[in-house]
Simulated scan of single mutants.
Amino acid sequence: MRPLLITVGSRGDVQPYLALALGLRAAGHRPLLAAPRRFAPLAAAHGVEFAPLNDEMLGLQDTVRGQGVRAAITAARSVKPMLRRMLDDQAALTAEPADVVIYHPKSLGGPSIAEKLGVPALAGLLVPLYLPTAAFPSPILPFRVPRGLNRASWRISGAVEAPYRRTVRGWRADKLGLRGTPRPVTALVEAGDVLHAWSPHLLPAPADWPAAARPTGFWSLPTGDWTPPERLARFLDDGDPPVYVGFGSSAGGDPGTLTATVLEAVRLTGRRAVLSTGWGALRPEGEPDGVLVIEEAPHEWLFPRVAVAVHHGGIGTVAAALRAGVPQVVRPFLGDQPFWAGHLHRLGVAPAPVTGRLTPDLLATAIEAAIPLAPAAVGLAARVTAEDGVATAIARITS
């Protein structure tokens, strides 16, 4: 088969699709991964055929992060032209045949590309977004609702696409020769054209979901033979397992204050720590005793070597920590992060989410509360790592 995989967004949106591409290639297929061009080196490192997509929107996010509301509003005016250029890059993918399209809904163009090629399309969802259930509210709902309104809360998913429908409709006509607006992703997912890429041990399929919607398990990259920088390897060898702190691309708008809070919390615990600056959520000006600052390291390699993982609750980081068997402390910022933070707490591998105004005492207390949860985290890891989410997804793709 010639599967076409289309995803956009941060590394957390791209890496699972890369893992799926690797699995497809190992199974004898010829996958093509289309993703923001900044991830071309990552794909090349794994030998995966790659089609670059315009990534100006990621650059825009980098520019305005932490600059305040006015900068964000000004930047928003540039989004639609950037979106159109990203869609134009996707249109170029129709120059060659494909047998199936697996797309991230953020790409917006996936269903239309499949329609143009005349092949099936499957939404590859890293979080539950489009299939209503009475079991829990939509993970992206920014407030709590009574249980009786759980199913109704999922209407918010359709609203996410609304601001872009006119742009997508014009692009379909201009670049693909297709008339009208594509079917909403909600309708496609409800028809069963979906792959849910998380572990059923984290979130099992609710009873009111069809069998086709059962989660496959995480799409995780193999750990490989990554060699750490000497300073990281030496730091890990020089003492007890440290606390990991990293918030990826999430931040509360003031990286300096967040960094100071984290460093003071670490000092209060008396523990060593590895701080990952990621996309700038943390901006330390130096390295206090017992603290090592890195830009990033593969979670699959690093997390088995730490005592606690403190993070924002993005599903990619959640998955890596679950597989590593490390207890977690989650400081959620937005989107689906509070949803996963609550689930981890209920599973007994994380203390209650750290919400509200973050203080050093609050974070230090949460870190200490996470330490005794290590046995539960190790037990859950044994079940999660026994799954092969990529193989399960491939079986559905090729059936």
Results as ranks from 00 to 15, higher is better:
171 W>M: 04
175 K>A: 15
176 L>N: 06
179 R>L: 07
179 R>C: 00
187 A>R: 10
187 A>P: 00
188 L>V: 09
191 A>N: 02
193 D>Q: 15
196 H>C: 14
197 A>H: 07
199 S>E: 03
202 L>S: 02
202 L>M: 13
203 L>N: 05
205 A>N: 09
205 A>M: 10
207 A>L: 14
207 A>N: 12
209 W>L: 04
211 A>E: 15
213 A>Y: 12
217 G>Q: 04
218 F>N: 01
219 W>I: 11
220 S>F: 00
220 S>L: 09
222 P>D: 12
222 P>G: 08
223 T>P: 00
224 G>C: 01
225 D>S: 14
227 T>L: 13
228 P>Q: 12
235 F>N: 03
236 L>T: 06
236 L>R: 05
238 D>H: 14
240 D>S: 14
243 V>E: 04
244 Y>C: 02
245 V>R: 10
245 V>A: 15
245 V>L: 15
245 V>Y: 08
248 G>S: 11
249 S>N: 10
249 S>L: 10
254 D>F: 01
255 P>R: 11
256 G>M: 04
256 G>P: 02
257 T>S: 12
258 L>T: 12
262 V>S: 08
263 L>P: 02
265 A>L: 06
265 A>I: 02
266 V>D: 05
267 R>G: 15
269 T>S: 11
269 T>G: 08
270 G>D: 07
272 R>I: 07
277 T>S: 14
277 T>V: 07
278 G>K: 04
280 G>D: 13
281 A>C: 03
281 A>F: 04
282 L>Q: 05
283 R>S: 12
286 G>F: 06
292 L>I: 13
293 V>Y: 07
294 I>W: 01
295 E>Q: 14
299 H>G: 13
299 H>L: 10
